[in-house]
């Protein structure tokens, strides 16, 4: 074995170890987070947590029923806002990739993707809270929706691009107009993938706290009104976690655990959808 070859082998070994180390360093925090959240949260999670309202300070027990429902309402509004807006932008980008307008849209989506979520929250506060002088579920939902839009735009664009060109030609050759081809054939073909992207985006915004602080605010009481402040898991966890009460700390862990589970479930569902899509495309 020449010295050169030995040196190369040594180098290769060295980088393998380095890579392994990097992976471990990245995984340790994830494992620790999951471990702590499960250890602290799973124990505090009980039936009351899902069904009861928060108790006043000092009383033990109670749950986060209002915050769970609140989070569902908020991400529902976010999806209602972001899916049409992002979807249409994505279709436009895929269909007219070269136009000036498209590059503007693409740039805007990229910028929006990079805007800190607290800034998005302040923006929603400025246009939806200040004029009516009231925090509301709508303001919170729109703030989350704004964060979803760029993700939806990009997944829609990419997935429409992935649809085989033959399908478009097939539709056009039968006398379909361009828009009919897009909405009748291409979009349905890309839909499972787009839904996956929407799930991922939902998972991402379900865990946001900052944009809700001055939009949806919080609500100690049961509310499903869209024009009233509304509770959310993230803000509730935040409020409980900074409080001095042990019982609230336990509930904050339970809330954190539930959030992690929601996000995990959405991510796994997205994975499944992708797998199915890949299988479909291969056949």
């Amino acid at each position: 074995m020449t010295a050169n070859l030995r040196r190369r082998k040594w180098f290769s070994r060295f980088f393998e170890i380095l890579c392994g180390l990097a992976v471990v360093i990245a995984l340790i925090p994830l494992a620790m987070i999951l471990f702590y959240v499960i250890k602290e949260g799973a124990g505090a999670l009980n039936w009351d947590f899902f069904t009861k309202m928060p108790k006043p300070v000092g009383e033990s027990g109670g749950g986060m029923a209002n915050a769970i429902v609140g989070t569902l309402i908020l991400i529902g509004i976010a999806a209602l806002f972001a899916v049409p807006v992002g979807g249409i932008c994505g279709i436009h980008l895929a269909e007219y990739p070269g136009t000036k307008f498209s590059s503007v849209v693409r740039f805007a989506a990229d910028v929006l993707n990079g805007v800190p979520s607290i800034v998005v929250g302040i923006f929603a506060y400025g246009i939806l809270v200040l004029p009516v002088k009231r925090f509301s579920a709508i303001a919170g939902g729109v703030a989350l929706g704004l964060l979803m839009v760029p993700i939806v735009v990009r997944t829609t664009e990419e997935l429409i691009r992935l649809v085989p060109g033959g399908l478009r030609e097939g539709a056009l050759a039968l006398g379909a107009t361009r828009s009919r081809a897009v909405f009748g054939v291409i979009l349905p073909a890309a839909l499972p993938g787009i839904l996956t992207g929407i799930l991922v985006a939902l998972a991402r915004v379900a865990g946001e706290t900052a944009p809700l602080l001055f939009t949806a605010f919080n609500n100690r009481f049961w509310s499903t009104s869209l024009t009233q402040p509304i509770a959310s898991l993230t803000v509730q966890v935040f409020t409980y976690a900074i409080s001095p009460y042990d019982d609230w700390h336990r509930q904050a862990w339970a809330g954190a655990f539930l959030l992690v589970m929601i996000i995990l479930t959405l991510s796994i569902a997205a994975r499944f959808a992708v797998r199915r899509l890949e299988r479909m495309n291969r056949s």
């Binding site: 033959g166 399908l167 030609e169 097939g170 056009l172 050759a173 039968l174 479909m280």
Partner: peptide, 18 residues
């Protein structure tokens, strides 16, 4: 659109819609 309705086309790679 009218033209393509009068003139059908079959492609090299079959392209059934999903």
């Amino acid at each position: 659109v009218e033209l393509r309705r009068r003139v059908g086309m079959v492609f090299q790679k079959s392209n059934p819609f999903p």
